[in-house]
Each structure stands twice: as structure tokens, then as C-alpha cells.
Design a protein around this nucleic acid. Structure first.
Lengths: 238, 238
DNA sequence: CGCTATGTTGACGGGATTCAAGGCTCGTGG
DNA sequence: CCACGAGCCTTGAATCCCGTCAACATAGCG
């Protein structure tokens, strides 16, 4: 592997089509040089930030995989999302200048640090950046509403099917296979995200395997029947 | 229907402390004159906008009460939120220039229309407005994560308790009583929001009444024991 | 090698849903 | 003014999906 690049540059980042700079042209991108000040690496299991900490920057995942979770006072814990390369972390912190969730690396990861006040400054200068940023926040809201639909209306099999389809779709957008993947999270974390207990997740995986929809060996997955999964999500409401 | 009101002015609106202009001073407010172009009234049961429609403006609730809901192709339907005076509708539309949910008035209502491109223009000029807007979007994300926690971890009683506490808190912020309220939505709509069936909502109301936590007569509520409700939400995880 | 975290599977119980019947409210029209 | 109907709400009984508890398997790591 090459030595760490000295300079961070969205212009030369292969995630620029997925990340904050979507829609910016070459000459606009040059203006972002100063925005993404530095990187930070987060070893597996470590926190990128914690609930209650002061909010100062957004983070764009560069490599690796994260989860975010909110917890109530009494120790309840809910995974609110999983983030992969090109996705933004920390948007919840804007509301009160403090983070409202924990962000934990599920594998050794690195992020680009985007100081928030600089982002506001720059987005006043560059309409395209401003609009991209707003779209990203809005997309997060839409995503959350989708999860609410899932948690409120679907049964265990449908939830897991929807989750897996979402995951493979995002992996595919990043150039990975749509059928073969390695889960970076535990059954318990999947369960927390989907509002299920880990045993139910495990059982549902086993059932999917019995039904020939996929091969499951621990965290190694091979999707055999995408359409059947899709049908599960759609045809359910019976 | 009445002729269109003459002039809309945030500066003279008694919702300005709750609505988009939070934090703006008198001289800044004057600049918003042009932003909130007009009002629109929405009779009970009518749509403010529908899923799929082109997104052009945000709406601030002026009077009345709304619900937003997303639906999947197969007719499943999930209420994603209830909005009262001072709250913003339509944020989900920014992501793709099309609305991603339906917004329906639950009583005769009126909204301020905020053309979105003008909001972007103005927020490039006024740092405070820009920041307020970002905070509002972020707050919506935080709220959604709270609902995910509720849907993923709580049992029926806790969900309804959390819902009622949230409702009374928002009503109180608007100068209403914290203990006496009229529900603007049906049991089915509450259930949809909370991931429960309407029968379960009804039964849980009855149980709360038996336990002396509140009086329930159809949609008329009187909260008798706020702290017991709060305890339900907190001490539950057992 | 043995410890710990994680994953699998079975048996059982419970909370919520489903199905069904009936009551309440309010608006409309006779 | 009152009857009537539609929408909304309440309540009961039966069912089922998922959670709980428990035992064991497997993987990763010092």
C-alpha cells in the first residue's frame, strides 16, 4: 500500500459521486480543498463520537463501516443506521450543537473531517454545495421514514429481507457484488436496527437458507434469489 | 372561501419563536417579508401535498393540525408524524424534488407557503436563517431516531405514554394546558404512528384510565398523573 | 488450549393482532 | 326535531408471532 497521501482532495477521491460533492464540477471541487481539512482513522470498536459530545464537524466515511445508535437513560439501545463509504455521519448534531447518538466503527475505518462552520460558510458561496448538503439531510429524513415503515408495519421476515436488499443495493452502488457479501455487524446489531431480538434474526436467516433464498455461514452471505426477497417485502401486508 | 389574506409577515406572527425565524432579530425578520409569499388554507381531510408530487415549497403550519404518512406500493401505510402550529412540512421533498409522503389536514388548517428556491437564496445571504434551517432539518432527524427507538424497543403502554407526553409537551410550548387536550387524530392514526393496531391503542387508553393515569372520553383527554406516564417510558426495559 | 464473544436451535409463554359484535357520536335529511 | 347511517370507538375471545430462557456450537484470540 502506498504511503498516506499528504493532501485530502475531493477532486481525486473515487467517492466523489456518492459523497458530499455530488454534482460539483471540477472547478467547484477545487474550492472544497480547504473544507475537508483532514482525515481521522477509527479502529474497530472505537467511537467516532459519543452522545452528548460537542458537535463541531460532520464526517464522511472514507473506508470502513459504522453504526450509529441512540440510547435512553435506562440502558435501552437502538441502532439507527449503518454507514458505509461515502455516507455522512453526525447530521443529528446540528440541532443542538451536541451529538445525539453514538457512532462506532464496526471495522477499522477512516473518515474525512468536515468542520461544520466551514461547511456553512462555503455553502453560502457555492449554490451547488448548499443544495447537495440539503439533499443529503433530506435523504436521511426519507430514509428514516422508510425505517419507521419497516418497524411499524413489517414482520420479521420482511424486515430482514428489506434490510438485506438495502444493504446489497448500497454495496452494488460502490462496485461490489450484489449477491455475495460479508456482514460487518452482529446478529444483535441487526436485530436492534430492525426491532427484533438476535434469536429471531438468527432463526430468520436459517429459514431463508432452508427456503433456498440464500446461503448463510456466519457473516458470509450469498443471495441466491433476489426476486423472492423483493417479493417478501412487497406482497406481505396480507 | 375568503379572499387571499393581504400580507404575511413573520415579524408580526406570534409563532416566530417556534417557527423558521427562531433566532432572527427584528431587522433580519424584515428581510423575510418576501420569503413567505402567501398562505394557503387546507380544509379538514384534504391533502396539502401528495407523495410523488413535484416539490416546490416548504409549508409552515399556521393554524390547525396535520399528519404525514408514507405508504408502500401494496397499500401499507405508516403515519410518520403529526404537525402543529409552527412546525415545518415538506422537508422530505428536497431529496429528490418530489414529495415522499402525503400531508393531510386533520382539521381545518392554514399554512405559510415558503418557496424552496427562495429559501435557499435567502439563506445564502443570512447566516442566521441558514443556521436555523439546518437546525430544523437536524431536529427532524433526531425526532425520527426517537421514533425508531420507540418502535424498536417499547411495548404498547410505553409507546402510548411517550406519544402523549410528547404531544402535551408540544401543546404546552404553544400555551395550551399540559393536562387537558383533545386528540385530533383517530385511534387508527395513533396506532399507525406507534406501530400498533387501533384495538391495542383503545385497550391501552382504557387501561390507563383504569389505573387512574388519565380520563379518556373519546378524543377528550385529561392527564391525571404525568409522572406515572413518565415513569412508564423510563423504567420499562425489563 | 481454553476463554469469551457470537451464533444456532428448541421449548415455552406472553403481548399484540385478528376476528367479531356491539355502542357511541355527529352530521344529514326526512 | 328526531331518525338514521356512517365513521369511530370499545370490548371479548382465540390465535400467532416473537420474545424469553436455556443449552450448546462455533469462531476468534490471547
Amino acid at each position: 500500500m502506498l504511503p498516506e497521501p499528504l493532501k485530502v482532495a475531493c477532486a481525486s477521491c473515487n467517492l466523489r459521486e456518492l459523497c458530499l460533492p455530488v454534482g460539483l464540477h471540477a472547478r467547484d471541487l477545487a474550492q472544497l480543498e480547504g473544507l475537508v481539512a483532514k482525515r481521522r482513522s477509527v479502529p474497530r470498536g472505537e467511537h467516532l463520537f459519543r452522545n452528548g459530545e460537542r458537535f463541531e464537524a460532520l464526517y464522511a466515511v472514507r473506508t470502513g463501516f459504522f453504526k450509529t445508535c441512540v440510547g435512553s437513560e435506562d440502558g435501552r439501545d437502538q441502532v439507527t443506521g449503518f454507514q458505509m463509504a461515502g455516507e455522512l455521519l453526525g447530521l443529528d448534531g446540528i440541532s443542538s450543537d451536541h451529538h445525539h447518538c453514538d457512532a462506532v466503527a464496526l471495522e477499522d475505518s477512516s473518515v474525512c473531517v468536515i468542520p461544520y462552520d466551514q461547511l456553512e460558510d462555503l455553502s453560502r458561496e457555492f449554490t451547488v454545495l448548499q443544495h447537495s448538503f440539503h439533499k443529503i439531510m433530506s435523504r436521511e429524513i426519507v430514509r428514516d421514514h422508510g425505517v419507521m415503515l419497516l418497524l411499524g408495519n413489517m414482520r420479521a421476515e420482511e424486515r430482514l429481507a428489506a434490510f438485506l436488499l438495502n444493504l446489497t443495493q448500497r454495496l452494488q452502488a460502490r462496485g461490489f457484488s450484489a449477491s455475495s457479501l460479508v456482514l460487518r455487524m452482529t446478529r444483535e446489531e441487526i436485530g436492534s436496527y430492525l426491532g427484533l431480538k438476535l434469536e429471531t434474526v438468527s432463526r430468520t436467516f436459517s429459514k431463508f437458507q432452508e427456503d433456498g433464498l440464500m446461503e448463510v455461514k456466519q457473516r458470509q452471505l450469498r443471495i441466491l434469489d433476489h426476486e423472492a426477497l423483493q417479493a417478501l417485502v412487497n406482497d406481505s401486508h396480507c
